[in-house]
Design a protein around this nucleic acid. Structure first.
Length: 586
RNA sequence: GGUCUCAUAGUUCAACGGAUAGAAUAGAAGUUUCCUAAACUUUAGAUGUGGGUUCGAUUCCCGCUGAGACCA
């Protein structure tokens, strides 16, 4: 049990014994301007007891002073009772922190699905937010005691990849990633663009001949060819399959390079080409259970109006699947494969409706796991110039962005003259670490559900609320610890007076576990990010105001060293939850 | 047409229904005989709009305006 809960119980006991009112007491951290560590808000009592706030506060404060071993002082402001804990409590808390209390395992399995790329073009900025979120959330859940598996569902079939294939067949001339000097995913992406160009020209030509736009879009030879190809693919035509496998193979190679570079991974990858036919048996099951109904044209629907949703198509009249059909099948498969309790989909908020429908159907079908399904919805990443649009060429390519960040990190490090004492290899690793730290932190510090703005100039900033600022703080602490010449600092038995800043730091450190739990519950790396920044910022203030190495009192010196050692650990852990590495020196 | 999400300093982001709405950045002014100045200090600056619930609302509820997404 942590110190906050103990205090809350003692406050509740005081309220009961003094005023005879039962109930739980919730505490807030005391604001910096007031003396105290925790605050009990008792406006509610003022009303029910019909007494003056000052009187109530004083009575509770006096009771706690004489009955609680951990409260050393109190003050009352309006309906706020500020309680200050004794120094020995903090030293105790800190000693426990340092010994590293383990979080109890929850014995629950969670599946996190993220990334979900299409195989017709390379990853872009939006995928980066998705990847970083998925990876980070899974790390946070692990830290909160869950057993976590990461999976990826690749959209490797459909009209989009056929478009690339059509263009390659016409313009490819046997080009390969090697001969083109391009990553495989970029090469296939190039042909997707080529398709679009040629297709548009064809449409314009047809329209010039007097054909209406709608008709021209369907009649353009490239579109006809792509549609034919899709049918041939479904019929397993050997030539088409070979081409499809060749292009997708290139794409996977390219994706894997990118995943490796940005430090994300998966325990299993699902391919839509394997799963796109799944779910039809579930439609049958739903019809039998009376959850679905059939219209005259043989199409199958579900009525979700009782959930505030619509009637939704689950199978077309010609018996072909829609998206939701295969998602039903895939979800069954995933829960079967991993026998997990929870499943989280990291998918953009344009699919909010889709997931509402999916989960509602699962529930109506009586799937026991329906309750454990969660859509981690995140907002789009906008550019200062507006929305990213692939057609207008305003998409920020993931690989290019990472390379740019690394180059910038290198330039700034060299400009600051911080390259001394590093080998070439170490420098490369540092540039990469700092660049990815900046990028990941920038994308993760914003609450997932919110739409966010990506400003290239700001993202490579190394000052303020940024990844590199936190990394730098960690490196400085490690430097101090190296210079102290000690290893593993004992926490002194007693310190008469802790400085306010020292208590602030312990206070922050103590909350680390709470932040992890909250983040796990809300799937929010943003909470962790802002927390770690607060810690780094508080440390920097502490650092400039206190001598750490040359403190007169040995006990005080040791305590401070132990304290900042713990800060470094917490920063490293916190950044680890965001998938960000921290350097020993920089 | 229907559903959902968002709206806070110039800008990018915070704030379990709590105290004087926090940071960062850009602006202004400072701090390197002292463990890493990628740092620190000071300063100025914000809740779209109208109601309601509450001792107390950025937060909850209902209009309106604006931005975005989705469903046919």
């Amino acid at each position: 049990m942590n110190i906050e809960n103990i205090l809350a119980e003692e406050v509740a006991k005081a309220v009961k014994n003094v005023f005879g009112v039962e109930g739980r007491a919730t505490l807030l951290p005391t604001r910096r301007e007031f003396e105290g560590n925790y605050t009990y808000v008792f406006f509610g009592l003022v009303k029910s007891l019909k007494k003056a706030p000052a009187e109530i506060g004083a009575a509770l404060g006096e009771y706690l002073l004489s009955h609680s071993a951990i409260v050393s002082r109190y003050n009352v402001v309006q309906g706020f009772l500020n309680l200050k804990l004794s120094d020995s409590v903090w030293i105790d808390v800190f000693r426990k922190l340092k010994s590293g209390e383990q979080r109890a395992p929850r014995n629950r399995k969670v599946l996190v699905e993220y990334s979900s790329p299409n195989t017709n073009k390379p990853l872009h900025l939006g995928h980066l937010r998705n990847n970083f979120l998925g990876y980070s959330v899974s790390e946070i859940l692990k830290a909160a005691g869950y057993e976590v598996s990461r999976v990826c569902l690749v959209n490797d079939r459909g009209i989009h990849i056929c478009k690339s294939m059509v263009a390659y067949r016409h313009f490819g001339n046997g080009e390969t990633p090697e001969s083109a000097g391009l990553k495989g995913d970029h090469l296939v992406g190039k042909y997707y663009v080529e398709f679009d160009k040629a297709y548009k020209a064809q449409v314009n030509e047809l329209m010039g001949g007097g054909m209406p736009e709608e008709e021209a879009k369907k009649a353009a030879p490239f579109m006809v060819e792509a549609q034919e190809m899709l049918v041939q693919w479904e019929q397993n035509e050997p030539e088409i399959m070979a081409l499809w496998k060749k292009l997708n193979g290139w794409v996977y190679e390219g994706f894997n390079t990118t995943y490796k570079k940005i430090g994300v991974d998966f325990d299993k990858t699902y391919y839509e080409s394997d799963t796109y036919l799944l779910g039809k048996d579930i439609v049958e099951e739903g019809l039998q259970k009376g959850v679905f109904y059939k219209k005259e044209d043989q199409s199958v629907w579900i009525d979700l109006t009782d959930q505030g949703l619509d009637h939704k198509l689950v199978l077309r009249g010609d018996g072909t699947s829609v998206y939701i059909t295969q998602d039903l099948g895939t979800t069954d498969l995933k829960f079967e494969d991993f026998s997990c309790d929870k499943s989280i989909w990291v998918v953009g908020n344009e699919q909010d409706y889709h997931f509402k429908v999916l989960f509602a159907i699962l529930e109506k079908l009586g799937r026991s796991y329906a309750e454990g399904c969660y859509h981690l919805s995140y907002g789009m990443v906008d550019l200062p110039s507006g929305k990213m649009k692939s057609r207008e060429g305003t998409v920020v390519d993931a690989d290019e962005l990472v390379e740019e960040m690394i180059a910038t990190s290198k330039a700034i490090t060299e400009e600051k003259g911080k390259t001394e004492g590093f080998s070439e290899e170490q420098l490369e690793a540092l540039y990469r670490m700092v660049a990815l730290g900046a990028l990941k932190y920038y994308l993760l510090k914003v609450e997932p559900k919110k739409r966010m703005l990506f400003n290239p100039a700001e993202s490579i900033d190394f000052q303020g609320n940024t990844g590199p600022f936190i990394q730098y703080t960690h490196a400085r602490i490690r430097s101090i610890l190296r210079k102290s010449g000690l290893d593993g600092f004992p926490v002194p038995q007693g310190l008469e007076e802790l400085q306010t800043e020292e208590v602030d730091l312990v206070f922050l450190l103590k909350d680390y576990g709470k932040v992890v739990e909250a983040a796990a519950a809300e799937y929010s790396p943003a909470l962790i990010a802002n927390y770690v920044f607060d810690l780094a910022k508080t440390f920097n203030v502490f650092y400039t105001q206190h001598s750490v190495l040359n403190e007169a009192s040995e006990a005080s010196r040791l305590f401070r060293l132990a304290l900042i050692e713990q800060v470094a650990d917490t920063i490293r852990n916190g950044m680890g939850l965001l998938g960000i590495e921290v350097p020993e020196k920089m």
